[in-house]
């Protein structure tokens, strides 16, 4: 004779199994994560380039201002079909062109429109020079810490729209280009 005991229904074990499964998933996930990470470091930079994340804080404020200014300048360009003059940007209270307290603080940069869509700065006190290239949709900012780059002359007249400066000219002149992490992603996928 075989005796078989009837097992009472007990729901207690369900919780343990689920907790175990969840823990397992998390462990396996965290183990596999490094294999699927995007490393910024993998993208090698050219000699004339530097990552924004590698820059010290002082230039970052100027660069942030220039990024916003770039959007405004592009908007004005598309609306008026002409590159805004420095005077226009000052009147529009656009940083870093407007001569306010922070302009004072940043080194009283004198801005010049040196080519259609290219704005160059010259600090009054010794400091970094900046160059904003708004020729393209994406923001393109260059700087020159050592004051070694050759300055580009101011535009003689605003009608001279034929001058389009290329990246090579900036590199040749000795400017350093700032690379943002977005740029890396943008060049990685073809949109």
């Amino acid at each position: 004779m075989i005796t078989q005991s009837v097992i009472s229904e007990n729901r207690g074990h369900e919780g343990y199994w689920i907790a175990f499964l969840c823990a397992l998933i998390l462990i396996v996930g965290s183990l596999l994560l490094p294999f699927n990470s995007v490393h910024d470091g993998h993208h090698t930079l050219a000699k004339h380039q530097v990552f924004i994340s590698d820059l010290a804080p002082p230039p970052l404020a100027m660069i942030a201002d220039l990024r916003l200014a770039h959007e405004e300048i592009r908007y004005l360009y598309e609306t008026n079909q002409a590159w805004p003059e420095i005077a226009q940007l000052e009147e529009g209270w656009l940083a870093p062109f407007v001569k306010d307290k922070s302009w004072d603080h940043q080194g009283k940069h004198q801005w010049l429109l040196v080519a259609p869509g290219v704005y160059q700065s010259e600090p009054v006190t010794d400091g970094t020079r900046y160059l904003l290239n708004s020729q393209g949709q994406a923001v393109d900012i260059w700087f020159d810490q050592a004051q070694q780059a050759s300055l580009l002359p101011a535009l003689a007249s605003t009608e001279d729209n034929a001058t389009v400066l290329s990246t090579e000219q900036f590199i040749d002149a000795g400017w350093i280009q700032v690379i943002f992490s977005d740029d890396v992603e943008e060049t990685a996928h073809h949109h």
Partner: peptide, 26 residues
């Protein structure tokens, strides 16, 4: 957010969805 490429964040996707579904059912 954890650093996976935006067009293939398969680990975050898998882990979260699986845990979400298991917990919901539990």
């Amino acid at each position: 957010l954890l650093g996976e490429p935006p067009e293939n964040p398969i680990i975050g996707l898998f882990c979260f969805c699986m845990i979400f579904a298991l917990l919901l059912h539990f």
